[in-house]
Write a protein that binds this DNA or RNA. Structure first.
Lengths: 363, 363
DNA sequence: TTGAAAGCGCTAACAT
DNA sequence: ATGTTAGCGCTTTCAA
């Protein structure tokens, strides 16, 4: 079967190619009569535009690349889900890449080598640092997800990581805990997020007048469960082990919970735990995990919108969008059964504006 | 900055466009001398091909669409990760869609409306049934993921769901359990997978000479945690509650575990649990979940390869690829701590060939 | 309001 | 071994 093109439609409708194009794109003006004839032909022949040709001509593709470290990490999977949704709402499709934390992969994406023409790139950088990013000049629009790298040269969208960490830590302190540990500091890499969360943790301790014990800060290689489990094990070896832990993400927290369970420690009675990300599992693990919940939908929508804004008008000043987060209090700090109702505390930047209610706090 | 095209490169290298094209595509033959000159120009001008133009010309795009119900379900996220990886290995990129179980979304993808030219579509159908799929004629190559719909009109790749269910059930029976329940039967929808898993469950019971109690089969709306939790609760209401449960996927199993934990029942002492999918969480939940582990990597690779095979030669007979699965025995049936070593039992279709070792059975 | 024709950047015949 | 040329299917001046 030969592909149907504008030519075929035009000849069937007895008009010129241009007129068909006008109808398809709602450009120019066409009399209702002609339009109807063309539309009939369009439908009859089941015309569908060749997007490659359109893009070649227009120089844009309707495609947005999203580059995330790994889809197997629930946080990124959930984010990807929102990004795909947000892009679709704007009439764009998402080309998905996994960088797997490889600098090379991130760079290749930035270079745009062997990629179709893109309307933009949403990148969650893990390996690349500011200088590497800055090398990228006059390419398609770029939005960074998560903490920006170095000074604000690029559009980026994030939560207030420092405030979030402080909120989490303050919550633990508010429970009367005084040996509050942190899991997630990073020894290597340009991970600004870890730095900010550490800063927030320290801020909260200072604000509460609690002495800061450097032994309580556990570093990790990656933000994965095994790292959290190992870090927790190390913390428990301390002469004076912690009675609470703030984990820099939920995966670390879940790993820590596993260690606590294996050691027979009660959560939250012996050790209270807070994470960050509010992945779905946080709601369902036993005990369910108290966590900082970023507004993922807002994150995704903001990223896509920034991208398209950039695409529309080049040379705009880089913009930072900070989306709200809230503290979802669950069993690892509340101790009570969520059937009794978990309280969600809406937080900055717009305290009081809770992004979305938790529909299923309890299975 | 003007975009660099073949023309610019050609003029700088003092050769014709065709020669540059030959160098870029490694087609034709070029003397080493000219090649070097061209490559120098390529690098100097930082040439990158306009893929839209290339696709227009070649009629193929290097793009594979992957349509999954939801990325937020870990099983699909993990599958997507493998698909992206497998596609990359074949030099293709993945355009990701979420159908969210909506028939409309699935249909739109099949129609290919407003999509770039695709080298193929990998679809995990949830809503569409055989007739709907059959309507799709002479479009780009299509591979179905999971159970095929109706008769084998399409390429599809799957595990042997019936055997997998039987393996899981037999494992429970082998533990001496006699009240083995099943969670995941579906009352509505064309879900062939659920039917096959139910059949496998019944087969195993019959093979073991255990009477089949219809009360022990719990139906669900969706394969999500809350459904599993609710189904488990119903099963526990029975006058003679089950001492083991085979859940049709891990999400259901995790929901069931949650209910069991809330009720204070011990797993596996009081109730043993098996799932299907081997999502990452199965390894880390407490107790860790025994589950049927499909070889996701094989699933993804087979899907991509089928697609490209179809693309290469049209009109091939539809093919079914069955990839291996194994039973990953963990705490919900073994009871022992995984530190003692969990045994993975490789199963059909190639018993004995374990797809991949579990690197991190223990955090 | 509609038509004719040029050309987006590339690849593939064909010619040299 | 390299150059020339004709489109791929579409959008877009420019003319009618």
């Amino acid at each position: 079967m030969a592909r149907i093109g504008l030519r075929e439609v035009a000849s069937r409708a007895g008009v010129s190619i241009k007129t068909v194009s006008n109808v398809v794109n709602r450009t120019g003006s066409v009399t209702t009569a002609t339009r109807e004839r063309v539309e009939e032909a369009l439908a009859a022949l089941d015309y569908r535009p060749n997007l490659a040709a359109r893009h070649l001509r227009r120089g844009s593709s309707g495609l947005i690349a999203v580059a995330l470290p790994e889809l197997t990490q629930p946080y990124f999977a959930e984010l990807a889900a929102e990004l795909v949704r947000a892009a679709k709402a704007r009439g764009r499709m998402v080309l998905l890449s996994q960088t797997e934390g490889a600098e090379e992969a991130e760079r290749t994406l930035l270079e745009g080598h062997d990629l179709p023409i893109l309307d933009g790139l949403v990148l969650s950088p893990l390996a690349l640092d500011a200088p590497a990013l800055r090398e990228r000049v006059d390419r398609s629009p770029l939005v960074l997800l998560g903490e920006h790298v170095g000074d604000a040269v690029f559009d980026h969208v994030t939560i207030d990581n420092c405030a979030a960490a402080a909120d989490a830590t303050a919550h633990l302190l508010g429970l009367g805990r005084r040996r509050v540990a942190a899991i997630g500091a990073q020894v290597s890499g340009p991970n600004e997020t870890a730095l900010l969360r550490l800063a927030g943790y320290r801020d909260a301790l200072a604000a509460a007048g609690v002495a800061h014990d450097e032994e309580l800060v556990a570093a990790v290689e990656q933000f994965h469960r095994p790292d959290g489990a190992a870090a927790m094990a190390r913390l428990l070896e301390l002469p004076e082990p912690p009675d609470a832990v703030f984990c820099f993400n939920d995966a670390l927290a879940l790993g820590a919970l596993r260690t606590l369970a294996v050691r027979g420690l009660r959560v939250p009675q012996d050790v209270a735990v807070v994470g960050v990300d509010d992945i779905e599992e946080a709601t369902y693990t036993t005990p369910s995990l108290t966590t900082i919940a970023p507004d993922k939908q807002a994150l995704a929508t903001a990223a896509i919108d920034l991208l398209l804004r950039e695409g529309a008008a080049a040379g705009l000043p880089p913009q930072t969008v900070t989306v709200p987060h809230r503290l979802a209090v669950r069993e690892t700090t509340a101790g009570r059964h969520p059937a009794l109702g978990a309280e969600d505390i809406p937080l900055s930047p717009t305290a009081g504006s809770r992004p979305a209610p938790d529909p299923e706090e309890q299975p």
